[in-house]
């Protein structure tokens, strides 16, 4: 089809990019500003805030806590979410639509509601609030996203490949390990990355169910209440850089998927 230039959608797309980038650019700019206030004017250039950030013991502790939680959530959510994607796409059991729908419910219930409900439940059943409960809560929050990411390649998956592997003498587990999972791997990898980032940034569930757990979002939350020191801006800029590098890793995959669906 011949495509032509449409100025209105093009302008909105441009405005959307500005809207998306403006806050990121602003805090990155101010993370190098010597003034302790997050406000104009820019008075110079300094990396002091980064030095202070890295020297701050609390940040290190919180980083360890956040990475521990996010890594555990990533492993659990990826395994469980991938399995559930198989259930949604391939299972032939009674009431499958209802059961599959049930699995996606966390997407349509506000996180705050989940957080409050989990706190009440954990306390009622006597589970001590801490790392374990935060991880559990984050797994509930992140798993449906993993399932969504794995479902897309699984729907496109050609079942003849499995049959071919079987004909060549591979058992079900060998087929899964050597044929199915490698083909689904790009989707699984994106899902894992998403689960990690969702958990890493999540605040409400950690706040409700993690007594004594000081993850990075909780630390940033308490820091911004007392006047927002520029070290928070330095942290924001650094974490943006990390996310950007992770995104570069999956960009070729996204491009390929978009080409494929044309």
């Amino acid at each position: 089809m011949r495509r032509e230039f449409h100025w209105f959608p093009a302008a909105v797309t441009g405005a959307m990019l500005v809207y998306s980038l403006l806050p990121i650019v602003t805090f990155t700019l101010f993370s190098f500003n010597p003034s302790p206030f997050y406000a104009f004017p820019l008075t110079g250039f300094t990396t002091d805030w980064y030095v202070k950030l890295l020297a701050d013991g609390r940040i290190g502790d919180s980083l360890v806590a956040s990475v521990t939680i996010a890594a555990s959530v990533m492993v659990a959510a990826t395994v469980i979410g991938t399995m559930f994607a198989f259930f949604v796409v391939r299972a032939a059991v009674p009431f499958k639509r209802v059961l599959a729908g049930l699995g996606f419910l966390p997407l349509v219930v506000p996180v705050l509601v989940l957080a409050a409900g989990l706190q009440v439940t954990f306390v009622e059943i006597g589970l001590p609030l801490g790392f374990g409960t935060v991880i559990l809560g984050h797994v509930i929050y992140a798993t449906p996203f993993v399932t969504l990411m794995v479902m897309a390649p699984l729907y496109r998956y050609n079942p003849a490949l499995d049959a071919a592997a079987r004909d060549l003498g591979a058992g079900p587990f060998t087929t899964l390990r050597l044929v199915t999972l490698p083909i689904l791997w790009p989707g699984i990898r994106s899902g894992a990355l998403l689960a990690f980032l969702l958990s890493f940034n999540e605040w409400a569930i950690a706040f409700f169910t993690g007594r004594g757990v000081n993850s990075l979002p909780m630390l940033v939350y308490s820091l911004q209440r007392n006047g927002l020191p520029p070290t928070v801006l330095a942290y924001a800029a650094l974490s943006t850089a990390v996310v950007a590098i992770a995104a570069l890793a999956v960009l070729p995959l996204v491009t390929r998927l978009l080409r494929g669906s044309k």
Partner: peptide, 12 residues
């Protein structure tokens, strides 16, 4: 920009 997290995105 989305995955930077709601807290930082809001404070910005």
């Amino acid at each position: 920009t989305f995955l930077v997290g709601p807290l930082v995105r809001t404070v910005a």
